[in-house]
Design a protein around this nucleic acid. Structure first.
Lengths: 199, 199
DNA sequence: TGTACATCAGTGAACGCGCGTTCACTGATGTAC
DNA sequence: TGTACATCAGTGAACGCGCGTTCACTGATGTAC
């Protein structure tokens, strides 16, 4: 039962989408290829018509999710017009919906320590996504130089990634919420329009 | 070959120490019990004389490493006398040695996304360790109220955890170093003695 | 203090299971004539 | 346009492997007398 090129591409896209969802929910190591293929409505045997290895799927799923997530961030930050709103981006990231997996979450927070041990391809992909997110955030920070804005954006991102991760580690939802809220306050104070700065 | 109580306790301590090391290096999922037992100089069969399950080992190893790491932080922050030095604590955390596993690393950064999916016991243990680290950092931050100091300390910690995690994801060591250095600058600016604050 | 016995830390083989990967096969599709 | 054939996406069984866990066994220890 050969499929048309369009169908084949659509199937591959669906496998990647399901993989990215399962990895985000259960982690990379804990997600089996059979789980992913079943979620895509296929049997596991067909996997190798589309990918050379699980590692390749991990890299492509990571890239796809970073793409989706970066678009969501850029959209959230552009709603209010002008240079865009830093607060809107941060509020989209630091929510209980993000913590509890009710949004298309950030793979850097969801898979951070697993990505740190992933193969070079996946880490390169994740690095590129990180840089793109930095640019998206930096575009909403007004500073004398773009270098300073990028530095502030990088800091805001690592703080958000750490905050979402720790909000998930912590068992008490109230503590989780306060981690997210306090982080938001601190980032806005450090990087918002009125922040003191070295520029 | 029954062992004395002292020997048994020492063996268990050694298993936990080796486990904490292997988990930190390779991740929880990727570390097998046989690896841990071999590192402790034992065969895998004896594992269940000391633990009920791998989950229990994970919880105890996490607790042990957090204890060690918190002590190292407290010691680093106390060297220079007085209330202690925030900068010394941050400098101990945000180093390439920490990134590359040449120190007794922080399990919150090393295992973050895996801990977020761990069983409740392990997450409770990790939460308690996180709170202890917050206290250690807060003790080096001068603010009008201890509540504000704790809030600043929490923020400094999530930023450091995110920074170390991302410094490991990123493939280029120069980028990794700059993430660590810029994060240090930003935290000192946000939480250091001269920081503007809401208190 | 000396003897007999119960305890139990540690060994190493074995358990069932799920993993990533391979493969012979099927049959609808795209292609060549 | 119609026919014959090569392609290849997807199936489902099978592969070797390592996992967490169990278990019968060993033998040095602690304990009871």
């Amino acid at each position: 039962m050969k499929k048309s090129k369009v169908e084949t591409a659509e199937t591959k896209r669906r496998i990647i989408a399901m993989a990215s969802q399962e990895f985000q929910r259960n982690g990379i190591h804990a997600t089996g290829l059979a789980d992913v293929m079943a979620a895509a409505g296929l049997t596991h045997g067909g996997f190798y018509r589309h990918f050379q290895s699980k590692d390749q799927l991990v890299a492509e799923a990571c890239a796809a999710r970073l793409e989706t997530f970066a678009e969501a961030m850029e959209a959230a930050g552009s709603k209010k017009g002008g240079l865009g709103d830093l607060r809107a981006i941060i509020e989209r990231y630091l929510t209980m919906d993000e913590r509890d997996g009710r949004t298309d979450g950030c793979p850097l927070a969801g898979l951070g320590s697993e990505l740190a041990r992933a193969d070079p391809d996946t880490r390169s992909t994740a690095s590129a996504g990180f840089m793109r997110l930095i640019d998206a955030v930096a575009a909403r920070i007004r500073r004398r130089s773009s270098k300073v804005a990028r530095s502030d954006a990088m800091f805001a991102l690592v703080a958000m990634i750490g905050a979402v991760t720790m909000s998930r580690v912590v068992t008490d939802p109230k503590v989780a919420r306060s981690i997210l809220e306090e982080t938001e306050d601190h980032i806005l104070r450090a990087c918002g329009p009125a922040a003191k700065s070295t520029d």
